[in-house]
Write a protein that binds this DNA or RNA. Structure first.
Lengths: 104, 104
DNA sequence: CTGATACTTAAGTGATTGCTATAGTATCCC
DNA sequence: GGGATACTATAGCAATCACTTAAGTATCAG
């Protein structure tokens, strides 16, 4: 699998509550760096570093206009995660009708 | 959110290619520890440690019979990840018809 | 021009990861 | 019993993480 590295970065990016919070916020529309950081007790520096992780994973894209950097969600990245999950579900469902009855 | 910790552990567990590989294998049915480790160039010790991470996250459950530990997937855990993803998709889709047209 | 705002960069730190090597313990098979 | 098999537990280590502090560099507003 060539995109193994991409999935690593995606899941890793989502493995932090602050980063998931930022994603949740961005789902409701674009936001600046300080706006994204407001809900968290964290220096702006830390927020920027989380944002770097998110951008590196492809989940977020941003552009600077004046002194404000505006971030927006890259839905394609979330879809990629979803596709991996669907593939697992598919093979689970075709293979495990027995295990479901037996479960517990 | 109370389950923040649970999602942390789930995404963290999925952020490693070996662990995702083991999950993929387990989607096709139960397997022993050494069976799960076979595709990877890794000591059995390392495999067992990955498995610990998977079990701690709730993605895998196992039981020992004789000297063989048999692992199986806990589909509920994957569903929990899926539910988080769906919630994001929902708010993305209701909020962002504009951003889609504007993109690139 | 000047001060406030919005980041940005760099260095440092303590904690957590993903391994390995080594040394177990508990079956199973002859 | 005695050796192979299947883990299991512990310690150690280099790399990465999630921050912080401190010191920048650009805007923008008056």
């Amino acid at each position: 699998m060539q995109q193994a590295h991409a999935l690593d970065a995606l899941f890793q990016a989502l493995a932090d509550p602050a980063r998931r919070g930022m994603i949740a916020r961005l789902c409701r529309g674009p936001a600046s760096v300080s706006e994204l950081g407001k809900p968290f007790e964290m220096t702006l520096s830390a927020v920027a570093q989380h944002l770097q992780v998110l951008e590196a994973s492809g989940l977020v894209r941003s552009q600077k206009l004046g002194r404000v950097r505006t971030c927006r969600l890259e839905a394609k990245a979330l879809e990629r995660v979803d596709r991996w999950l669907s593939a697992r579900r598919a093979s689970w469902e075709t293979m495990q009708p027995r295990a479901k009855l037996e479960a517990r």
